[in-house]
Design a protein around this nucleic acid. Structure first.
Lengths: 112, 112
DNA sequence: AATCGTTATATTTGCAAAAACATAACGGTA
DNA sequence: TACCGTTATGTTTTTGCAAATATAACGATT
């Protein structure tokens, strides 16, 4: 019976999307699993989609966000760089503070 | 060469979208033209899509946002209620303040 | 050199959302 | 009552995106 203000934020670089909620989820799953294919499985998305997202992230970021390795013991894997870790931390922090900011604005609509 | 934080906000009511940027554009065009069909033309969207949006807005809002009339001199028309006008004003105000809020957060990412 | 699980990439298939098209209903006015 | 531009709604077609499928390349380990 009451209104809610919802929001989505994302970071762009040169008009390309760098980071949004979906990409942050995927990066966190990579951090936990150590591989892109396992991360994709854990999020129920196809490996291809996951790869495209990570490829886009690394192409639009100033510095690498993940390090992907092919072959070798275990077939390879993917891991976050320090830059990648601090990027998702900053994103989460800003996103959360945006929610609380918007919550405070709700009264301006409820009172109409 | 630098990042940007972008955002979209919208208002929901009972898990239905009430107002977003697209719907606000449409409502403003109705206010200017006095009819839904003219508003749709001015935004280059089909009349059907415009009608569906306005129908959804009025169904999820607590009070009517537009008054639509069929037939008569000129065939009919659509106009905003006072509630509708104040709703889009509040939305615009909150949206703008959200942008300036996020602008202030950008340093947390640029400095990484 | 054979194996293995992974990254990387191309091609095809399916589906749902959007667009396009069509038509009915309405109610002042002349 | 015939007309007109609008609201309202159903049906068909198109199209863009997601999913599914297939396959190559890689490199440490045995």
């Amino acid at each position: 019976m009451s209104y809610k203000i919802k929001s989505r934020i994302w970071i762009e670089s040169e008009n390309n999307v760098l980071l949004g909620e979906g990409r942050v989820h995927l990066l966190k799953a990579i951090e936990e699993t150590g591989s892109l294919s396992k991360a994709a499985k854990s999020l129920n998305i196809s490996y291809k989609k996951a790869w495209q997202l990570i490829d886009s992230v690394n192409k639009s970021a100033k510095k690498p966000v993940t390090i992907n390795s092919i072959g070798g013991r275990g077939g390879g894997g993917a891991e976050l760089t320090e830059y990648g870790k601090s990027l998702i931390n900053a994103f989460d922090e800003i996103n959360k503070s945006c929610w609380t900011f918007l919550d405070k604005q709700l009264g301006k609509i409820e009172s109409l």
